[in-house]
Design a protein around this nucleic acid. Structure first.
Lengths: 205, 205
DNA sequence: CTGAGATCGTACCGATCGGTTCGATCTCTG
DNA sequence: CAGAGATCGAACCGATCGGTACGATCTCAG
C-alpha cells in the first residue's frame, strides 16, 4: 500500500535497507576508507541500485549522517526522559547512556565530528552543525529545568563535555571516561544552579 | 657545520622546510584532501626530494603530526608557565591561549583528532594518543598544584573540556566558546580543590 | 676543476576510485 | 500472460592517486 504507483519490489524498503547496512561500514571504516564497489558488495546491492537511490556517494553519506543524527539524538533524549523529573537525574542518564556507547566494541567516536573532519564538503559540515544543535537543545533544556542562572551557557559547556568525553574515549581510552564526564557534568550543573561561591573571577563576561 | 659528511645544499634544512610548508596545507585541506603532486607544487619542492626525505606520504604525515604535537604542547605549557604561580591563573591562561587559537581564521579544530578521524593508520592513532597524553600531563600538573583531591580525575575532565571546546569551536561556531570553556574549567577546579558541597551523589567512584 | 650528491621537472606506471552502461533476470500490476 | 520497472552483475570509462625513473642542473668538498 505505501508503495507509490507502478513500482515493484518496494524501492522504499530497498533504500532503507541500504542506509541501514551502509551505516556501520562507513562509520567503522571511514567515509573515504571504503569505496563504492566494496560498500555495495558488503551490503549486497548493485552499484546501479545504490546510485538510483542516492545519486552520488555524497548523497548516500548525507542521507546516512542525517538519519544517524536523528536516531542518536532521539536515543539520548529518551534516556534523559526515562530518568524522571529531576534534571540532575536526567543529565546523569545522558552520561550513563554515553558510557554504554563508549564501551561498545565498535565505538569509534562521534560519527558527525569524524565525518566533518574527513569529508571537506559543505553539506556534511552543515549536518554536523545541526547535530550539535540537537545536542545543545537537549542539554540546554536540562539546564533550564535545573534552574541554572544562565542555561545557554551551561548548555554549551555541557555540549563541550559531551563531545570532549566522546573524543577522549575514542582516542585516549575508554576506561572511566564516561564516569569522569558524568561527575564533571553534575559538578557544572550544581555550580550553575547555585552560583554561591567561586566561579567568577578575572574577566567579566 | 651540523651538516654530516659529503652532502650538499643542506638536506636537513630542506627537510625542515618541507615539514614547515606542508603543515598548514595538510591541516587546512585534510590529509587525504591534497595529493602529493599538488602538495609538492604548493610548497615548491619536487616529488623526488619529498620522497627521499620521508619515504612515503604517510611518513611525511607522521613526521608532521609529531612535530606539530610537540610544538602545540610547548606553546600551551609556556602560556601556562607565564601566568605565574597560581594554578588557577595557569589554567585560565591555557584557555585564553585556546581562545586565541579558535579565533584564528585558519583554525580547523584539533589537528590530531582530525588526523585520527581521517587516516585509519595505526601510527597516526598512536601519535594522537601521545598528543592527548601530553595535554593530560599539563592539566594534571595544574590539578596537582591546585591541591585537587583527585588530580588524575580532574586532569582527565579538563582534557575533555579542552578537546570538547576545540571541537565545538570548530564545528558549532567560535563565538564565546573559549570563554565558556574557561569558566567551566575554573568551576571544575574550584569544586575539585574544595569538595565541600554537592558533586558526590548516586554512584560511588 | 672534478666529482659526489641534492634537487628539479617531467614523464610514466599500476592501482583505485566514483560513476555509467547494458543485457539478463526478477517481481509485481493490469 | 504481457509489460513496466527494479535489481543484478560485470564490463567499462576517465580521472586521480601514490610512487618511481631519468636526464639535466646545481652546490659544494677535495
Amino acid at each position: 500500500m505505501p508503495v507509490p504507483k507502478g513500482s515493484t519490489i518496494d524501492p522504499e524498503r530497498t533504500r532503507a535497507a541500504i542506509l541501514e547496512a551502509a551505516t556501520p561500514v562507513l562509520y567503522e571504516r571511514g567515509l573515504d576508507g571504503v569505496g563504492v564497489a566494496e560498500l555495495c558488495a558488503s551490503i549486497g546491492v548493485s552499484k546501479e541500485t545504490l546510485y538510483r537511490h542516492f545519486g552520488t556517494k555524497d548523497g548516500l553519506v548525507e542521507a546516512m549522517l542525517t538519519a544517524r543524527s536523528e536516531r542518536v539524538t532521539r536515543w539520548l533524549a529518551e534516556a534523559s526522559a526515562e530518568a524522571g523529573d529531576d534534571p540532575r537525574d536526567q543529565l546523569a542518564a545522558v552520561f550513563d547512556a554515553l558510557r554504554e556507547w563508549y564501551e561498545d566494541p565498535v565505538f569509534r567516536g562521534c560519527a558527525m565530528l569524524n565525518a566533518a573532519a574527513q569529508h571537506h564538503v559543505e553539506a556534511v559540515r552543515a549536518i554536523t552543525a545541526r547535530h550539535l544543535d540537537r545536542y545543545l537543545d537537549l542539554l540546554t533544556g536540562i539546564a533550564e529545568r535545573a534552574g541554572a542562572t544562565d542555561p545557554p551557557l551551561l548548555g554549551r559547556q555541557l555540549l563541550m563535555l559531551v563531545e570532549g568525553a566522546t573524543a577522549v574515549a575514542a582516542h585516549h581510552g575508554t576506561a572511566g571516561t564516561g564516569e569522569q564526564a558524568r561527575q564533571a557534568a553534575l559538578t557544572l550543573l550544581s555550580a550553575a544552579a547555585r552560583p554561591s561561591a567561586s566561579s567568577r573571577r578575572g574577566s567579566g563576561v
